Simulated scan of single mutants.
Amino acid sequence: MYALLVSLLTATPLGTLASVQNTVRQTQTYAIQDWYDGSNFFSEWSFYTGADPTNGNVNYLSMSDAQSQGLAYVNSGDNTLVLAVDSTSSVPAGGYRNSVRITSNNVYSGGLFILDAVAMPVGCGTWPSFWTCGPNWPLAGEIDIVEGINNQKHNQMTLHSGTSNPCTIDVPANGTFTGSVLNQKCYSNQTADAGCSILDSDSSSFGYGFNEAQGGVFAFLWDNSAGMSLWHFARANIPADITNQSPTPANWGPPAGFWSSATCDIADNFYQHSMIFDITVCGGWAGGAYSKSGCPGTCSQMVANASNFADAQWVINYVAVYQ
């Protein structure tokens, strides 16, 4: 969530999965540890009400306020959770729109994390993210599983490490994933927080493309002994073992992104993470890159356009954590 825009022109395309040493434990079938859906999100996750750390034009609401304003609710028909930005109120240019940010009460230091979403927030000025973060940022690390801005078409996956123990993206000659490297160095601090990013090659992995595919699944495997892998599957391509709640990553083919333990001490850099959903507006990244995003006017002006945020909402089937 702290990641800044890195020029896509510097992206380095990589090959497909080939290295057995990078797939330790992917042959394992995982069992459910925690399952979050419309029945328990409001009891198992907390609403953040502080200032937006990315300097976005948002007011994050409490659970009661978000529910009363229709910005956080469960659809009775299909049990999906909806988290949204206010799209009806009159807000001046450069003002602040009400929005939502929620954090899981449980913390994790590894596992297989699966997000099934029907839709994600879209629109100029929006900056949605599904991420995990440890205490005392950046010391315990941050993992951006789903993130992008404005009219971006591809998901940007990023690790942020904060220790003196080096952490970079491994780029072996035979390749290990299908995405494109934007930045190799994961170390981040308050003034240099790009992290080590990989751009998904699939245009259905983010924004309008994701929504037009009726959403899909992101599967993130955090394995301290092998590394971290991230897959995206459009709705029509979700593996049967995920649907059947017996996920086996070895069946899924090459991931979109991979960060090897060979060049990053995973356990030292990432631990005790909570999961987070949020939707900010403008801010350091979406606002800073606004003029290059093909959006009209300025981001400050777009804040005042309530109708622009009509589709700025997460619609979530479930989040599952397997071990």
Rank of each mutant, 00 (worst) to 15 (best):
W285K: 08
W137S: 01
L159K: 10
D268V: 15
A312V: 07
L5V: 04
I102S: 02
N40W: 06
N305M: 15
S62A: 10
T88E: 12
N237W: 00
S46Q: 03
A11F: 11
G94I: 10
Y73E: 01
S164Y: 05
V107H: 03
P247N: 04
T163Y: 00
T12A: 08
D223W: 02
Q301K: 07
N224L: 10
W259R: 11
G70N: 12
N183Y: 13
G123S: 08
A84D: 10
A173V: 13
K185D: 07
K185V: 11
N59H: 10
S203H: 04
A256P: 01
N136Y: 01
W45R: 04
N244T: 13
P239H: 09
C186T: 06
Q156V: 15
P128H: 08
T88W: 07
H154V: 04
N308D: 03
D170F: 08
F258I: 05
S161C: 09
T263I: 04
F177W: 02
Q26P: 00
F277Q: 01
L221T: 14
F220N: 13
W259Q: 05
W45M: 01
N308T: 14
I242S: 12
G94Y: 09
H232W: 03
S164E: 04
I143E: 13
E212R: 15
Y30M: 07
T158E: 01
M157R: 09
H232K: 08
T54N: 09
L221P: 08
L17N: 10
D34G: 09
G50L: 05
R101M: 12
N251R: 03
N269H: 01
H160G: 14
Y187S: 04
Y60D: 05
L182S: 06
M157P: 03
Q21I: 12
S291K: 01
N57L: 09
W314Q: 01
Y187K: 03
A84P: 06
D78A: 14
T103M: 12
S188D: 06
T29E: 12
L81C: 04
S260F: 07
F113Q: 06
Q245M: 07
T10M: 04
G70W: 04
G77V: 14
Y271W: 00
N79L: 13
T16A: 15
S291W: 01
F42C: 00
D116A: 07
M63T: 06
A72I: 08
W137A: 02
H232I: 07
M157W: 12
N317C: 08
I316S: 06
G162R: 02
Q152K: 09
S261C: 02
L199E: 02
S76Y: 03
C167R: 08
V58S: 01
L221R: 13
S99M: 01
N244R: 02
N105H: 04
T176S: 15
G284I: 00
T298P: 02
G141E: 03
Y60M: 03
G162M: 08
N183V: 06
S89I: 07
G297A: 03
I316K: 02
N98Q: 03
T298V: 05
G257R: 05
Q33G: 13
